[in-house]
Amino acid sequence: MRYGSKRKRQIASVVYHAAAIAGAVIMVYPVVWMIASSFKDSDLIIRTATQLIADVPTLENYVVGWKGFAGYDFGMFFKNSFVIAGISTVGAVISSAIVAFGFARCEFRFKGFWFACMLVAMMLPFQIIMIPQYIMFNRLGWVGSYLPIIVPQFFGQGFFIFLNVQFIRGLPRDLDEAAKMDGCSVYGIFVRIVLPLIKPSLVTSAIFSFMWKWDDFLSPLLYLNDPKTYPVSYALKMFSDPTVGSDWGAMFAMASLSLIPIFLIFLTMQKYLVEGIASTGIKG
């Protein structure tokens, strides 16, 4: 079926691809610029900014950047980032899906209140609560470990809860009714019916969660003390120092490397976005 329709619309297809590629070039140019710049001498990045490819490409930035700071290299920082982002993502995706089902499919007292709490928590700027939160985690004795960064992820994240709620509300209810007739409990409906159907939003949550935790430097900044435990996002900040001078070459090099894991996660995950309800074809 796919091949047949493709032949029919060959011309449309050419137009489509031409437009898509043109758009892609605009989208991707700045990223290419960043990667290309990472192969330039550090002091040439700004001065030869309009020129994409360096006259004499160098790997110097990667060598200098990778060795990191004070004997802690980027191998270590990458490992830490994987631990933080990986565990956080698992926690955030699972807990948010569970909570979302409660909000989307169950009627209970004070539901509006809790939902509002969740939204307000989303609106709260981190900068404002970071001092009280620090004091709190410090009292718990968690400062200096990954706990303040990772543990809260296991209790649902507003953004993902809300996202899943929207998806679950988009699912036809007659599925639940049918399952109920078959003697399935609410919990059964969640696990057997809803969970498989909200795969696109679970995947989306996972991509976002991984990316945001990978990029987040504020909580590592606050809660980690030992350079051995620093993640990449935080380490990247240390290439620039306004009081003395920055090594933008090394920063570009390591920033380019740090894109790879998120991009790979996206590449592998986005396949699952393709199959949603559409391909399973329910409600038929």
Binding site: F103, K111, W114
Partner: peptide, 15 residues
């Protein structure tokens, strides 16, 4: 009514 709270319990605890 109970199940709803069971589901959102993680959020309430975390919050």
């Amino acid at each position: 009514k109970v199940a709803g709270y069971v589901f959102i319990l993680p959020f309430i605890i975390g919050f």
